[in-house]
């Protein structure tokens, strides 16, 4: 029996800082979330209200394309005027147009790749466990604090490359 709260409590620093997952790239953000990560359309539309692709706020997740080695940050609804402005497709999105995602004219090829995911706020407890269950890749420095077995009876850390680890649930 795993203690999901405990796992999140141990891993929330990594989940917000970012981790790598293997995924098909060259597809839209929505396809990544729904087809690759198996999230329901309702969940994506209702819970993931703020999306950043390579640090730019995304308005249309159907046309924004994830590429190999890109960074995707996912957040719930944010407070404040700026929080509302960051929301995808929101009424105030023009007020942050300087940091809005602009789609590339050329489409990248569809291929296996890796994507860096960052989970923020309400999405940490909602999505964190599922990503860890599938296995997340983190830099060695971030995994260092998790290597003591007594600290994490529910988590398995395995070397991936010389400078990274895979973290999964035991």
């Amino acid at each position: 029996m795993i203690d999901s709260d405990k796992i999140i409590q141990i891993l929330y620093p990594i989940l917000q800082k970012g981790f790598w997952v293997k995924a098909l790239t060259g597809i839209s953000v929505r396809q990544l979330l729904e087809d690759q990560f198996k999230l329901s359309g309702d969940f994506v539309d209702l819970k993931i209200s703020t999306v950043f692709l390579n640090g730019k706020a995304v308005d249309n997740i159907d046309s924004a394309i994830v590429t190999d080695n890109c960074e995707l940050a996912l957040s719930g609804a944010m407070p404040g005027f700026v929080g509302a402005a960051m929301r995808r497709g929101g009424y105030y999105s023009s007020m942050r147009s300087a940091v809005s995602h602009v789609e590339e004219i050329s489409k990248p090829p569809i291929q296996e790749g890796v994507v860096k995911i960052k989970l923020y706020n309400t999405l940490i407890p909602l999505l964190g466990l599922e990503f860890v269950r599938r296995g997340i890749v983190v830099p060695q420095a971030d995994a260092a604090g998790l290597l003591g077995a007594e600290l994490n009876p529910f988590i398995k850390t395995c070397p991936n490359t010389p400078d990274s680890y895979v973290i999964t649930i035991k």
């Binding site: 950043f52 940050a73 944010m78 404040g80 940091v99 923020y120």
Partner: peptide, 14 residues
């Protein structure tokens, strides 16, 4: 709390 904005503003580069 309102500090939930830190990560998001940082991500936006703002």
């Amino acid at each position: 709390g309102t500090n939930v904005l830190t990560n998001v503003l940082n991500e936006a580069g703002g």
